[in-house]
Design a protein around this nucleic acid. Structure first.
Length: 324
DNA sequence: CCACAGGACGGCT
DNA sequence: AGCCGTCCTGTG
């Protein structure tokens, strides 16, 4: 089998591109900091990544399939140096070439952002954030496809993560494009037109329940141009949230998740039951309304609210903070 | 069989 | 504006 390797530099990262004639493609990215696949793929922001036996994750995003593995340089010692940054490691992206890395994965994995600085700023806030950041030290906010994120979080309403994953997988199998890799089939998330042309009966097969009608109407509204994703970048966060809330099935929480996880706005604080519990238990020391929590987060975390929320959510859910 | 988990929405105050 | 019943599909 012929193998070809190239080493190059891209936006400050040293990359090795490994292509074999057998069809195996691999990208190695050196010195990637603040990266832990478990934290990234299991912190509730995405629904299409599955853990393999070797600890890597396989998923479909932006029309591409990849397997992601991370090898930390100093696995056993402390994960951070007390200043919010870690020692880094090597990121392996299988089934990707240099073009895929430049066009999809660099951006999707938010590799252009210095999470060390964000973690340091949040840890300086208080001991609660220090603990939350130390716990989820390898979290990154994925910059996901807007449309997939919107529909995924409409499905997330009053629903649990394993169920959301099943419904999104089912919608992709029914309406997305098939990709064959080593004779195994993967499916992309359908684009707006494909979902808009589906009937409610076809959607019902995907087990989305009462959310089927929201998906149906939202698809048709977006197809007709009632909401143009590009316009969300041009307005402030409150206006963007109100625009999204015009779509059925989209309230404050779904709107904020969509804005945050597709990388459009970062000064949001999506407040689900877990975030509400952790805020009540650790910050308010009493019951608090959603409004109070939103106001507090906006003032206290400001531009970093979205990142703070993600560390707090992962910390709360993994440790069952505030659970009955 | 029942209790419970999880946000949006609409009707009521 | 705030409160609360209802919506669906699971699992324990």
């Amino acid at each position: 089998m012929e193998c070809e390797e190239h080493t190059m530099e891209y936006k400050g990262y040293k990359i090795q591109d490994h292509q074999s004639s057998g069809g195996g493609k691999l990208i190695r990215v050196y010195d990637v900091r603040d990266f832990n696949p478990v934290h990234i793929f299991e912190c509730g922001q995405c629904f299409r990544w599955y853990r393999e036996h070797d600890g890597s994750y396989t998923g479909v995003a932006k029309g591409k399939v990849a397997n992601i593995f991370y090898d930390a340089y100093d696995y056993c010692s402390e994960h951070n140096d007390g200043h919010g940054s870690d020692k880094g490691g090597t990121l392996y992206i299988r089934n990707a070439d240099m073009e895929d890395f430049k066009n999809v994965w660099y951006d999707y994995l938010d590799l252009g952002r210095n999470y060390g600085d964000i973690k340091e700023a949040l840890m300086r806030k208080d001991d609660i954030m220090k603990k939350a950041v130390e716990f989820g030290y390898g979290i990154r906010l994925l910059r996901q496809d807007f449309w997939e994120t919107l529909i995924s979080f409409i499905i997330s309403a009053n629903n649990r993560i394993p169920m959301i994953m099943k419904v999104v997988a089912s919608i992709s199998e029914s309406f997305g494009k098939k990709i064959l890799i080593n004779e195994k089939a993967y499916h992309t998330f359908p684009d707006v037109e494909n979902l808009a042309s589906a009937s409610i009966e076809q959607l019902a097969v995907c087990r989305a329940g009462f959310r089927c009608k929201y998906i149906d109407i939202t698809s048709k509204m977006v197809e007709e141009g009632c909401l143009k994703p590009s316009e969300l970048y041009l307005v402030n966060t409150d206006e963007a949230r109100e625009m999204l809330k015009q779509l059925p099935g989209v309230g404050d929480k779904v709107a904020d998740c969509t804005l945050l996880y597709s990388g459009i706005k970062y000064d949001v604080f999506p407040t689900d039951v877990w975030v509400k519990r952790v805020m009540e238990e650790l910050y308010f020391h009493r019951e608090a309304t959603l409004k109070e929590i939103q106001k507090f987060a906006a003032n206290y975390f400001g531009e970093l609210a979205g990142f703070a929320q993600q560390y707090l959510f992962y910390y709360a859910r993994e440790n069952k903070i505030g659970a009955k």
